[in-house]
Design a protein around this nucleic acid. Structure first.
Lengths: 209, 209
DNA sequence: AGATTCCGAAACGCTACCGTTGCGTATCGG
DNA sequence: CCGATACGCAACGGTAGCGTTTCGGAATCT
């Protein structure tokens, strides 16, 4: 979006300024409450850059934040392809570790302002959320194929349980050691005792009263 | 917080104004991106009220929002006490239905500004999140006692899976019919096939490779 | 050299909202 | 009726950020 083509001669755009602006944006976005809390003036000051330099490159605050978030994202590692348990555990651990990263708050702060910046939110979902859902989805589908997972598994439900349990808290709240493993384990085994387990239908409760 | 004691005579404070202010606050909070997006002027205009009337009652924007959120919350219904499956399903359905409520976005929008308004966020967690976690926690503990749930269950993990799967998306995204039931069912049964199931220790993977 | 573009800094006019104050009116208790 | 308080409304000075423009200087092309 920035460095397509300079038309003629003249001084080239400073790459340092580019980096400094993006970094300052992310820093501030991690501290400020949402898009509204971020001001171009603050970014310029933090980056040691004139406002002109910012406006020359990005037409609006939204566009700047869009690019900044793009620079901050790091995709989940592709699962190794061992057992489903191993793969899910690896993904869960990656998600857990990710919360400690410097810019993990940015995304939370952006989500809070979703209504007023729908494009930003849509991009967040498309570039961050959906790819990682897809990775998990593939692992689960494979598990169904290999017989490691139940044949009647609702993949979307399982995904929401795995991802939800790991992402529904703000990153300030830490997880206990071994949380990722415990989640995967619980997801695989279930929390119920196995009264009436193998029955395929399996819908009515066990009436433990 | 508002109506404790009027010292003397004089015109009493309008109860209508109170309601109108709180309602306008919630309306705006459901639309605006976070606490920062809400202005006292806008609340006054929307409520058909002078700014004076607001400042007379609340010392700050935070205090106003605090009270407004307090008025918006509705606790989860106490579970009926039937089977654990029934109780969890009831809770899950309540959580699912809640997302359609008018003010459910308010909380999301507030969470996004958590850093800058820690008291607000703390109150949100204490008054909204924690009580409902406690309800679920009790159901799970009871299930362990009755034998409906695994004796070695990590209650916190199970809770985060149940609640996370139902609350980690913004309320704009709807769930398919029967989602609540599917989540509870999946949580109880697990997603794995039952190779090596009854083993109590049960820690090493099943090495399906 | 000369043209061209970028740089950081400062100032511009504009808008929104802050928290406060003053105004005339409405509504209570005594 | 009187004093007290609350009401809606409008205006105040102050702050912050917007997006734009101007400036002197620096970098790079032909």
């Amino acid at each position: 979006m920035t460095g397509s083509e300079r038309r003629h001669g003249g001084r080239p755009r400073s790459e340092r300024a580019d980096k400094a602006i993006i970094e300052a944006t992310l820093d501030l976005l991690a501290e400020e409450p949402g898009v509204a809390g971020l001001s171009i003036e603050a970014v310029a000051a933090r980056a040691g850059v004139g406002k002109t330099t910012i406006y020359r490159r990005w037409p609006s605050k939204d566009a700047l934040i869009l690019d900044a978030l793009g620079a901050a994202k790091a995709p989940l590692p592709e699962p190794s392809g061992g057992s489903v348990r191993e793969d899910l555990t690896g993904l869960a651990r990656a998600l857990t570790d990710e919360r400690k990263r410097r810019y993990s708050r940015c995304f939370w702060n952006v989500v809070g302002g979703a209504e007023k910046h729908p494009e930003l939110y849509a991009r967040y979902r498309r570039d961050i959320i959906e790819p990682r859902r897809e990775i998990v989805r593939r692992v689960l589908r494979r598990g169904v194929g290999t017989g490691e997972l139940r044949a009647d598994l609702d993949v979307e439900v399982a995904m929401s349980m795995l991802l939800g349990s790991l992402t529904s808290k703000r990153p300030e709240e830490t997880f206990p050691e071994g949380h990722a493993e415990a989640v995967v384990d619980t997801l695989l085994r279930g929390i119920g005792t196995d009264a009436k387990r193998r029955g395929d239908g399996g819908s009515e409760p066990i009436s433990a009263r």
